[in-house]
Structures are given as structure tokens and as C-alpha cells.
Computed example of a mutant assay.
Amino acid sequence: MGENIKSQYIRSIELKSEEISSFNKYPFSIPVIKNIGNLEFHPEVTFIIGENGSGKSTILEAIAIAYGFNAEGGTKNFNFASKTTHSDLHQYIRIIKGVNIAKSGFFFRAESFYNVATNIEELDLESLGNRIIDSYGGVSLHEQSHGESFLSLISNRFTESGIYILDEPEASLSPFKQINIIKKINELAKNGCQFIIATHSPIIMAYTNSIIYEINGEKIKKVDYENTQHYKVMSSFFKNKDKILNIILNN
């Protein structure tokens, strides 16, 4: 990482284990939580991957809230809450920040981005000044498909020197559009941006200047791209499609 570590907005996180009274209740009962320890982040892109229910989104959410973002997503200026569903893990996460301060930022959650879009429209109806939606491309995010609205977000709202925390950005994106996202992430990373991304997409996690943390049960560890379960499964499927389909469809 070299000198780039100075430009990190989030250098690492630590779990304040000493303050947790019990690991038998949610979210601390998620197997991987007790082993978070200290996670160091790449100055450009860090991926957190794992199976459904492994805890990756819970960890990402805790990082975002501890850093100051709204639990349902958006910028630090968003403070709406349609439903309180987030855990209190953020209270037990210590953020170790870099020397620089991010000029912008956004917490994207695929599952609650609809609520962010709604809040933007509500705020614009109440505003007598500039419309918030203009900084998102000028077209209502509700009038676009989910994939189009995310592309509008990353193309218009994501700017240089920003911290961007993304939970499953591949949702509703075609493989071709996922490749375009890699290009956009690279452009922003080269302009002082840092990304922390939870994803299932073998395409997006192929971005090379990054760290990949894979959750496997109680363990979370750095892995090379070709050694991730996501890559292995997809690669095996494409190489042995007929054999695999024959096995699963006839058993």
C-alpha cells in the first residue's frame, strides 16, 4: 500500500470485544462477529464476501453507521428512518481513520435504496431552493429501473475524494453493466476515493487493486480472487455446465 495509506479515510476497524457482555445474542451471535478483531482496509477498494447470512452486510452496515452514515443509506445528511432494522454492532466498532477527510460519501444499500429515492423526492417537495435530485442526474430515481438509478447515482453523485460503502451494488445490474461499474470504480479510486463493498459478484470483485476478505463460518480472512468460493463456483459451473446440471436436475 505504501504511501497511499495516508489517503485512506478508513484505515481499519476494531471490534470492542471488551464491551460485549455476551456473544449469545444478535448480532454478536453471528459466528464471524467475535473474530473480526482488527480489519485493515485497502486505500482504494476492500471487498467483503461470503454466503447469505454470513454477516457481511451486518458488518458493512456497522462500519457505515459508525462512520456517520444513515442506517438505511444515503449521504451523512440523510437522517430518515422508514423502519428500524439495523443492529447495534456499530456501537462496538472502533473506526481508525486516515489523515485526510473525505469530501463526499455515500452508503448504498440495494435493499433500501428505494427509501433513499423516496426521501429525496420528499425533501425536494419541501425545498424552495436547489433540488437534491439535480445532483443525482436530474431524473427521479423512481422513474428509472433499479439498475439505472444506481448507475445515475455512481455517475452523478459519486465524486472525487470520497468514501463509498456499497452493499450488493450488483443488484439488478446486467453482467455488462457490472463491468462498467469496475471502470467507474477505477476512475474514482484514481481520484482519491475509497470503496468498501459487500458483494456476491465475481465480476465486480475482480477489480485488481483491492483486498478481498472472505467470510467462511467463524473465520474472516484475506483471499486471492481465484481462491474465493464465488470464483471457484462460477468457474466450475461454466467449465462443467452440462455435468453439473445433469447431477442437480436428476437427483
Rank of each mutant, 00 (worst) to 15 (best):
S140H: 13
I63Q: 03
E168C: 03
I196Y: 00
N38W: 00
S21W: 04
V116D: 01
L15P: 09
G53M: 09
K103F: 14
L173Y: 05
H90P: 01
N209G: 00
R11I: 04
K243P: 05
A102G: 11
F47E: 03
K16W: 07
A81T: 15
A198R: 02
I220K: 08
L123D: 04
I197L: 00
T199C: 12
S201F: 02
K76R: 13
I204L: 11
S29M: 11
R11W: 06
N79R: 08
G53F: 02
G137I: 06
G37K: 01
K56V: 13
S235P: 01
K221Q: 15
K184Y: 07
F237E: 08
N251Y: 06
E160R: 09
S135K: 09
G105H: 07
E126A: 08
L128S: 05
N115S: 13
K184Q: 05
E40L: 07
K6E: 07
I182C: 13
E19T: 11
R11T: 15
G68V: 03
E160K: 07
S127I: 06
E121G: 13
Y92I: 10
S149G: 01
Y225H: 03
I101E: 09
I132C: 00
Y92C: 11
A171P: 03
F80E: 12
V32G: 04
H146S: 05
I59D: 04
T85Q: 01
E18T: 11
I211M: 12
G105A: 02
R11V: 13
S29E: 13
I182W: 09
N186S: 12
K232T: 11
S7I: 05
I220M: 12
E19L: 15
Y231M: 06
R94S: 11
E51S: 15
G217E: 12
G192Y: 14
S174Y: 14
T118V: 15
F158T: 05
V45Q: 11
F23P: 07
P175M: 08
E214I: 01
A62P: 08
N24S: 15
Q144W: 06
P31D: 08
A64W: 09
S235E: 12
L188N: 00
C193D: 01
D124N: 14
E121K: 01
N227A: 05
E51V: 14
A71S: 09
F106S: 03
N246G: 08
E160Y: 08
H42I: 00
E143Y: 02
I59M: 12
L125W: 10
F47P: 09
S210M: 00
T199M: 10
